[in-house]
Amino acid sequence: MKIIVLIKQVPDTTNVSINPDTNTLMREGVESIINPFDMYAIEEALRLKERLNGEPETVVLSMGPPQVETALREALSMGIDKAVLLTDRKFAGSDTLATSYTLAAAIKKLDDYSLVLCGKQAIDGDTAQVGPGVATWLDLPIATYIRKIEEIDKEKILVERLMDMGYDRISLKLPALLTVVKELNEPRLPSLRGKLKAKKAEIINWGFEDLGIEEDMIGLDGSPTYVVKIFSPPPKQGGEKFHGNPEDSAKKIFEYLTSTKII
């Protein structure tokens, strides 16, 4: 039984700059961290392992350039058992479709997994597509925005899904994929023994040849997404505020709404 956590290394800021020629992120000179939402997924994997008396093997999996090794070692220092890095020049330029296809192939190769955990989205791209994409390629049941894992046994898992109003309780058959939110837990800090162990640990490297995948479905060629423009939507304007006692304000709001023909 394995619990696989998908992680992404992201720049440590939401103010990343974009290369205007290629419309991709410029990563140089920005410190890299594990995507914060993925930290909750790592922590939950460790807690599930403790809950299940240490039985499942925890694995972190990531795709990216060789420097992603730092992120994987950080996960190991927190207590994750094994780290796999998918790195190959052929993977460069992958969009969420190609990325989820490649990650799914690696998960298949890892085999014997019960649960795949991901953060709800990455703070750089914010697409929230890779988790659901992986579930689709692997034909796994999926639940997103998980804030609590109530029960887990060999066959199924009972979770709470955070909604705008309240939450859903969902039971899924295992293996399944979950994407998680920050309400789930508080990630632990690494331990000194964990850091020393992580420093020496072997990171498993898999490239194109190792995964048995179609070349035209990966990297830039396998990515139908074409980024036209990246921009932040303009922040909401303050709007009009009505001060004074409730009766007067209500009257003013009513007049405003009727005059603008909203009601």
Binding site: R188, L189, P190, S191, L192, R193, G194
Partner: peptide, 19 residues
Amino acid sequence: VIADADLFRIFIPEEYEGM
């Protein structure tokens, strides 16, 4: 938190579960 990070081990000899 300090204990979980193993920082109480760094002033104890290795043969007594320190670092």
